[in-house]
């Protein structure tokens, strides 16, 4: 489902003496449907960078990143938008939403964007929020005022609302209490069962060992000074 071939990446900082910072070279990785792979390596090894490259958030200097039949490294913006809408989900560490939009609508949005009717999308969002223990009295409020853990759970609910065939998870269990952590791990397991190809970053080693089929060590592809 996800096939990364020989990708490299560097940052050029024009306003800081045109410093070129190479961060990755020659990374290759394949993830099949129903498989969960953990990216590992020290902080600065480029785990988040690779994940952002797969999502099209960072440009890829060379190599191929196939998600389904789209090469993210070369795809036009509208192809990536389409890919993100129906194929590739991403649960980032931080929730980024329009202020003043209710939590329920934030979670329902990926469904609305793919043409689910409003009522069905809201029902699905309610189910997810209930499962992740977000109290009902918060649903009508914007998540921007929530605690870190609550925001993280809203983010997860949103990321799991649509059944994407490919999923990127950046620290999905960070800042969660044991109950919610177990719920999230169960949701990831369910996604695997329905055939999703998953790439994740987990600092929570117990969670990583429980849910991931294998690990991919970024360190050997890292060139940066932080390696």
């Amino acid at each position: 489902m996800i096939s990364i071939e020989n990708v490299s990446k560097s940052f050029v900082l024009h306003n800081q003496g045109t410093a070129e910072i190479p961060v990755m070279q020659g990374a290759s990785l394949t993830v099949s449907a129903g498989e969960c792979v953990a990216l590992v390596g020290a902080s600065g090894a480029g785990k988040s960078t690779l994940m952002r490259m797969i999502y099209g958030n960072y440009l890829t200097a060379s190599g191929r990143i196939m998600v389904g039949d789209v090469d993210v490294a070369r795809a036009a913006p509208r192809e990536i938008i389409q890919l993100r809408r129906r194929t590739l989900g991403y649960v980032s560490q931080f929730l980024r939403v329009v202020p003043r939009v209710s939590t329920l609508d934030v979670v329902a949005e990926p469904l609305l964007a793919t043409g689910t009717d409003a009522d069905a999308a809201r029902t699905q969002a309610e189910t997810l929020l209930t499962r992740l223990n977000i109290p009902q009295r918060l649903w009508a409020l914007s998540p921007t005022t929530f605690s870190g853990g609550e925001q993280q759970r809203v983010n997860i609910a949103r990321g799991f609302a649509f059944p994407y065939p490919a999923l990127l998870l950046d620290e999905p269990t960070a800042s969660l209490d044991p109950t919610n952590r177990a719920t999230v791990l169960a949701m990831i397991a369910e996604a695997k069962t329905r055939g999703a190809a998953i790439i994740g970053i987990f600092h929570d080693h117990a969670a990583r060992d429980e849910i991931c089929d294998r690990q991919f060590d970024m360190t050997k592809f890292t060139m940066g000074p932080a390696a």
């Binding site: 024009h14 306003n15 958030n57 960072y58 440009l59 913006p77 938008i81």
Partner: peptide
Amino acid sequence: ETGLTDQVLDDPQHAYTQLLVS
């Protein structure tokens, strides 16, 4: 510079865009 909105804002390539974003 052109591209996906989040890509241009998070990984700007051109010196001016980098300045603008920062």
